[in-house]
Design a binder for these strands. Structure first.
Lengths: 188, 188
DNA sequence: GTGCACATGTAAACTGTTACATGATTGC
DNA sequence: GCAATCATGTAACAGTTTACATGTGCAC
């Protein structure tokens, strides 16, 4: 059982979707902690179905291609419920090209370095603003369910909070780096 | 030219090392922004050598195997200097298993969830403490060079600052999640 | 004598991304 | 006519991890 399988189970426990739907949801809603394209998703759905963790029914559509709507099974739900609180030992490999560049920034041109970090800061600030908007909407939904921790909105809320914290921290770091460079240029 | 190539150039611009040395340095000093094993490093060094970005000389040793000491060439240095301030468009894929679990935490047992996040918080707090120790040492080195931004210690300093910020933010988030769960348990 | 540190490589397996492949409908 | 959205898949490629392979010397 690979992690992508759990990703799909997590989405299917919230509703029934086609492979196409799941691809969109991944891109639009959970891209800040997982990414996958349709070429990974379709085979994985087939694997989950072979293991009876999900089922599907073919829905015929007029003027559009037929689609397979997948639903989680009881076995899938049980597996997922068990897995979510299982100790995580595997730290995912961290690879960050910007930090790599920062490590060698002392070699490069300061003006260009400032430009690089200003661009990055802007991107993270933009991302942060988007996440905050999404968070406001999620919080509203969660409120309507009385802020219960067994509501799916609780999951959305706490995970997006990490996305927000990360982007804020990243943007702050970018600005701090710019300051450091400027001080080094004009300083004693 | 792949990113791992630049990683090795960044280390070799600071000194001359063997493949074995580089493997150790990667693990011990820059693991928070890049990871690679020796099976990736040896072939990549050969590639860099073929492109005249690095050279090596074989150093014979008594009572130990011979080693190849690699050094960066002028061409390698020039390529690296240019690359470090080049705009970064490729956002590295974010994949975080704990955030994935958080997204579905509403399904799982709260007690076990708390334990999961306490364990994680502890690991990030430990990591944070280690980074801060390393940072103190780096700052000392950098001070001795008058905090010049064209010192290699500047690169070490700013990149590790990101590692520290990230770990602090992550640990904070873990504690915050625990609080949220506890409030949900005892709340109205 | 067992395991660890030094030292360098290759091969196989796995994961993930990009490209190929098909086909209908809707909007510009 | 051309691009975009819906819809599902396979194939090729690139990058990463794990395992295989070999050999010396030192400490316990």
């Amino acid at each position: 059982m690979k992690t992508l399988g759990y990703v799909l189970l997590e989405l299917l426990v919230r509703g029934s979707y086609s492979g196409y739907d799941l691809t969109q949801i991944l891109k639009q809603r959970i891209a800040y902690f997982w990414q996958a394209g349709h070429s990974q998703i379709y085979p994985e759905l087939a694997r989950l179905e072979a293991e009876n963790l999900v089922t599907f029914e073919v829905v015929a559509q007029e003027d559009r291609p037929d689609k397979k709507i997948y639903s989680i099974t009881e076995a899938g739900r049980a597996l997922l419920r068990e897995w979510v609180t299982t100790p995580t030992d595997s730290f995912p490999p961290k690879r960050d090209e910007l930090v790599l560049k920062a490590y060698c920034l002392w070699l490069g041109d300061p003006e260009r370095a400032i430009k690089l970090f200003e661009d990055q800061a802007q991107q993270h600030t933009k991302q942060l603003a988007d996440y905050r908007k999404a968070q406001a909407w999620i919080e509203q939904q969660w409120d309507q369910e009385g802020r219960r921790i067994d509501s799916q909105w609780f999951g959305s809320y706490i995970s997006l909070q990490r996305g927000i914290g990360n982007e804020r921290e990243y943007a702050d770091w970018c600005h701090w780096v710019i300051e450091q460079i400027k001080q080094g240029q004009t300083g004693p």
